[in-house]
Structure formats: structure tokens, C-alpha cells
Design a binder for these strands. Sequence first.
DNA 1: GATTTTTCATTGATTGATCCGTCAATAAAA
DNA 2: TTTTATTGACGGATCAATCAATGAAAAATC
Lengths: 196, 196
Amino acid sequence: MPKVGMEPLRRKALIDATISAIGERGSLDVTMSEIAGRAGVSSALAHHYFGAKDELLFATMRHILSELNTDTRRALGLAVTPRQRVSAVVAVSFSDEQFQPETIAAWLAFYVEAQKSAALRRLLKIYARRLNSNLMSGLTGILPRAEADRVAEATAALIDGLYIRRALKDGVPDAQTAIALVEDYLETKLSGRSLP
Amino acid sequence: MPKVGMEPLRRKALIDATISAIGERGSLDVTMSEIAGRAGVSSALAHHYFGAKDELLFATMRHILSELNTDTRRALGLAVTPRQRVSAVVAVSFSDEQFQPETIAAWLAFYVEAQKSAALRRLLKIYARRLNSNLMSGLTGILPRAEADRVAEATAALIDGLYIRRALKDGVPDAQTAIALVEDYLETKLSGRSLP
DNA sequence: GATTTTTCATTGATTGATCCGTCAATAAAA
DNA sequence: TTTTATTGACGGATCAATCAATGAAAAATC
């Protein structure tokens, strides 16, 4: 069975297993054995490819954010008007790929872990900055700078808040409702406005 | 030193120590020894009064939510108009007592833990329901039912989102700005409206 | 008021379980 | 024969939880 070129396959399998394990258990308190087991390998192999648990978790978070980024770029590519850009960012955040319980649970768990790990914190700051930048790329075409800043901040907070509530399966259960809430907010802030 | 009636004092000290330990470390991964040490007692005593670590954590979360509730009731008591009731709820959420890094970090950590612990999940659901109910107690005096529901949901999500961002010390660092953001949202949704 | 007894407070030491990370060994391509 | 893939077993560290033992206040007894 041992064939060459297993590394990328195993890495992918282990990262997927990490997401599903974290998603099911709802926290980063998953053992290397459990993750490896889900990926169909021994825990020793997980250590072989990732060195330490920290690095596996880090790689997993990077993978999640990377997918979010890819999806966002694709959606932004299709948007034409500034208003569409804003909606595209929102839509992706609650898309089927991103708004899954497993992913959300992992995202939340990483948020907590970021308080301990400087590396994770850096990663999440990048996410936050990117989300802000993506929102601003649309908002600055509609609102004056200062106001755009505030709306971006509020929208980002709103998205994060809906995420966390989803994680607890409390209130706003489905993506449709979540999008509607954010869009409703944006509409009241943007309606009737145009480039000043 | 051993005197009678130590129990309530120790319990309080241990809960305070738990909050500060969690706040400093940023997660529930604190040992009983560390907590006990901060409270100036042995870990055996912590077990003596709380039985298990779970119960100490549970008691700590209950304490945090209980304080939030007390403050909210006081603020609501001073509010006269429905609009003031809404603002009171928001103000308390970001008051000096509630919006402290330690408390926020603990709150976030408990959010994650709630996915594992049914007891904690129940506690947080109560918090969510109470927050919603408190907001609605003002909003129903201003908006029609359906719309009030949506605004309450969005406001709650906004508050939670600002909390989580505060935990990461990213964006919206101070309470003033946070309150301004939420109030700005409320103003756009409520301005010019009155009981239909 | 002096004593004995009971209750409460407290801890050091220990146990048992969990889990990360390592390592030597195996097996199959290349 | 060298490289790559893979694992079982193990060492070592950490911790939650227990327990027997100690000391000191309070209550009961005389």
C-alpha cells in the first residue's frame, strides 16, 4: 500500500477530519488520536506530517479562512455595482459552504483559542481586516468615508454575532433569515444614498 | 484561622478567581490548582466546596449572568419610555461592569463550552431569551410585532458580535463606540416611529 | 468554668486516567 | 538499496478527584 505522494492526501484528510471532529465535539478539545482515527490513520502519522497538534490546528484554521477568501473573491468578481459588492460579501458569509454547523463551531473554537495562541490571533486579525476591506470596497462607493467605516464595522459585528448565535443553535437558525437581517440593516443605511 | 461560616466567602473567592484566571488565560483551560491558588486556598478545598470542576465553572457562569441580570433590571427600572428601555438594555451590556476584558473572555469561553455541556447550554439559552425579552419589552411599544422581532434579533446579534470582537481586541475597542454603533442602528430603525 | 465531643475548615499526598510526542521497527515502492 | 509511508508501544507530563489526617472553633456535658 505505501506509495509515494501520500503527503498531500493525508494532510487534506487530516484537516478535514479536524474540522469534523471539532464540529462534532464543539471545541478544540479533540485528541490527536480521534482526529487521526477519523482520517483513517494512526496518531503517529498525524504527528509525522504536522509535527505538533498546534500546527495541525493552525493549518486547519488557515484552510477554513482560505476557503472563505476564495469564495469571496469569486463572488466579488461577479459583482458590478458597489451595492452588489456589499451584498456579495454578506451572501458568501452565509453561503452553504461557509455557514455549516461544523465550520461555524470550528470558527468559534478558534476564536477562543486565538486568545492563547499568537499565531492564531494573527490569522484571525487577517480575517477581520479582510472582511472589513471587502465590505469597504463596496461601501466607499456609496457612503462618505467616515460613515462607511461605521457601517462596515457594524456589518462585520452583525455577521460575527449571527455566526455565534448559529453555533449555539439559538435564534436565527437558517442562512436566509440571517442574510435578510443584514440586508435589512444595510438597506436602511444605504437606501437613497449615492456617491456624495 | 479555621472559623465557622467560611463557605460563602470561599465560594465567592473561588468564583472571582475563576473569572480572573479564565480572563487572563482566555480559555476554560485553567487548572483547579491555578484557580485555588489565586483564591489563596488548596485545590482540595475547591473540590470540597464545588465537588467537581464542571460545577465551579457552571457556578461562575451563573454568577456572571446573574450580575448582568441584576444590572439590567436596575437600569430598566429607571427607564420611562419604551425607547429608553431599549437604550437601557444596550447601555448595560456595554457598561463598565459587564464590558471588561476578563468578563468578556469568560463569556466567550463559556459560549464554546456550552456546545459540550448541556447545563451550560441551558444557561446561555436563558441569557439569550432574557436579552430578547428585555429588548422586546421596549420595542413592542414602538414597532409592530413582526418588525420588533426582527430588530430585537438583529440588536442581540449586534451586541454578541461586538462582544466577540472585543474579546479579540480587534476593532471597536471601547464601550462608547460600541454603544454608538448599536444606537445608530436603532435610531435608523426607530426614528419617526411611534406606536402603530 | 472546665472538660469533652462534635463539627467545620483545610491540606498534602496519592491515584488513576488521559494524552502528546517520540522512536524504533516494518513494509513496500523507487 | 535507498527513500517514503506507516504504526504499535512507550515515556513523561499534566490534572482532576479522593482521602486520610490535622487543627481549631463551637457545642455539649459535667
